[in-house]
């Protein structure tokens, strides 16, 4: 029985993630079948280890078994049910001005969600807006993210104008380990700012980009602002199913 435990523990770790339907909180959709196959192989290895009276591989010692239990411990105690990592260095992922090389267009998006039209607004992710196309100026969009206030707008001779209202979302390309906070600018058009850190559904139109430091950042002029609960999937996904 002890011989089977390492495989049973790893199978349980992945199994818990799949049963709680949390895989998509950590890894891209393309990993679903790989995780299911992994659980199946690990379960078979555990079963064979139980059934076989003796084998070449000796039973693991207790300290090693404890180590193999760590993923479940972290999953259940720490990571499970926790919100995503907090916005740390919110990056304005957009076109740098004055760069010495030609910026590359981002081609690998969006793969996770098919854009839909709601009340005349195209539902998009923050990532899609962050790498927006200038042809889209004036488009009506609906986007969801976390509101961050940068205080009153200021102008600095070196940094340029600093926008006051931001919408932030963690963007994932492959797994949650590569989550980066990506930001767009909101033009509230005179509305009262929501509380800092609130989840918002924003409907509005893509406006002229805001200048932030040496960057041009997508700006949305707000038509409608709705406070919402944190979504089940807190991330915005960029990677296509590869």
């Amino acid at each position: 029985m002890k011989r089977a435990l390492p495989f049973a523990l790893w199978a349980a770790f992945v199994g818990i993630v799949l049963l709680r339907d949390e895989a998509r909180l950590y890894v891209a959709d393309s990993f679903d079948w790989k995780l299911i196959a992994s659980v199946a192989v690990l379960a078979v290895l555990a079963l064979i280890a139980v059934l076989r009276a003796r084998g070449a591989a000796p039973a693991a010692r207790w300290p090693e078994l404890l180590a193999h239990a760590t993923p479940i411990l972290v999953l259940v105690v720490a990571a499970g049910g926790l919100p995503p990592p907090p916005p740390m260095a919110a990056s304005f992922g957009s076109t740098p001005r004055g760069a010495t090389h030609t910026p590359r267009p981002f081609t690998g998006m969006p793969g996770k969600r098919v854009p839909v039209i709601v009340d005349g607004h195209r539902r998009v992710g923050v990532a899609e807006l962050a790498w927006f196309d200038r042809d889209k100026l004036g488009d009506a969009v609906e986007v969801t993210g976390i509101y961050r206030s940068r205080g009153p707008a200021v102008t600095d001779s070196e940094l340029g104008a600093m926008p006051a209202h931001l919408l932030v979302r963690h963007v994932v390309t492959c797994c949650a380990a590569d989550a980066q906070a990506v930001t767009i600018v909101l033009d509230l058009a005179g509305r009262t700012p929501p509380p800092d850190g609130a989840w918002l559904r924003v409907r509005g139109r893509i406006a002229t980009p805001a200048a932030v430091e040496s960057w041009e950042v997508c700006q949305v002029r707000v038509d409608e602002l709705t406070a919402i609960d944190a979504p089940v999937d807190p991330y915005d996904w960029m990677a296509p199913s590869y």
Partner: peptide, 13 residues
């Protein structure tokens, strides 16, 4: 939170 999410995500990947 960052540690927990990163740890689990990297292991799953």
């Amino acid at each position: 939170r960052t540690f927990g999410v990163t740890f689990v995500a990297l292991l799953l990947a």
